[in-house]
């Protein structure tokens, strides 16, 4: 099993991951269209934090003990049984923001156009999350579970 890791020593702060993430989660999935016409209705699900010369990309860690699932009052925030990913069922989310209140990473946002929580879904259906696939410096990488914990 593999996990996403952020390697801040390799991140150059180019924010390509944010762009790819935004496009991936837009309706059109086309970069020009996404930026021209959908800019107000879609947000990247990860964010690059930058301070001086340090930067890194941050998205949901799909925590094993996920505070957001625990605090979700509708049951919308759940763990996908097949993949273990923490996902928000947007049909059931009412936008109470309990998840935002408890996420220690600040990795969940209010959806820009719909009143639901917006977070990393690990790009369901893609072979690799687009942030991993498109990072020029492998600052967002996939690693085997045991390497990560080593």
């Amino acid at each position: 099993m593999k996990r996403i890791v952020a390697r801040e020593e390799y991140c150059v702060g180019c924010r390509l991951c944010e762009i790819h993430c935004l496009v991936q989660h837009s309706k059109s999935k086309k970069i020009i269209k996404a930026f021209r016409e959908e800019r107000d209705s879609v947000l990247p699900r990860l964010r690059v934090e930058e301070s001086g010369c340090v930067s890194f990309a941050l998205q949901c860690r799909h925590c094993e003990q996920a505070s957001c699932i625990e605090a979700c009052m509708t049951g919308a925030m759940h763990r996908a049984p097949e993949t273990g990913a923490v996902l928000c069922d947007t049909d059931r989310c009412v936008g109470c923001w309990m998840c935002i209140m408890v996420c220690p990473l600040g990795a969940i946002r209010r959806g820009p156009d719909s009143h639901v929580a917006s977070k990393c879904d690990l790009c369901i259906g893609e072979d690799y999350p687009v942030c991993v696939a498109n990072c020029p410096n492998e600052a967002i990488a996939l690693r085997e579970e045991d390497e990560v914990n080593a």
Binding site: S51, R61, Q65
Partner: peptide, 24 residues
């Protein structure tokens, strides 16, 4: 405005960022 994980002590940041769980 810039407050985020990068403002936090490296140790704590690593601790929460590398919490077990991401499975792809």
């Amino acid at each position: 405005k810039e407050f985020g994980l990068l403002s936090l002590p490296r140790e704590y940041r690593k601790h929460i960022v590398s919490g077990r769980g991401i499975v792809v």
